[in-house]
């Protein structure tokens, strides 16, 4: 979150379980982070399951990145 305050585009990858906490922290820090939400958990996943997490979030990441960069 500190990176966004300093002008860096800094998407945060967060699991659904910890999303409310990250949102609360963001409010407390007066920042509005770009959030990339993935299903919980991440630790303990097999490589295939992890690839599924990547696949599920990649579309949002690319859209978020293009938007920040000002590309269609």
């Amino acid at each position: 979150m500190e990176l966004e305050r300093r002008g860096v585009v800094a998407p945060l990858v967060v699991t659904e379980t910890f999303l409310p906490l990250v949102q609360a922290q963001a409010r407390a820090r007066r920042v509005d982070p770009r959030l990339l939400v993935v299903p919980h958990p991440v630790g303990g996943l097999t490589p295939d399951e992890l690839a599924g997490r990547v696949e599920g979030a990649a579309g949002d990441l690319l859209r978020m990145a293009d938007e920040a960069r000002g590309r269609p």
Binding site: V9, A10, L12, V22
Partner: peptide, 16 residues
């Protein structure tokens, strides 16, 4: 944080 902020335009963070 200083290094990342000075050196990069975009940083993907996991998490916080």
């Amino acid at each position: 944080i200083d290094w990342l902020a000075q050196r990069f335009k975009m940083v993907l963070v996991a998490v916080g």
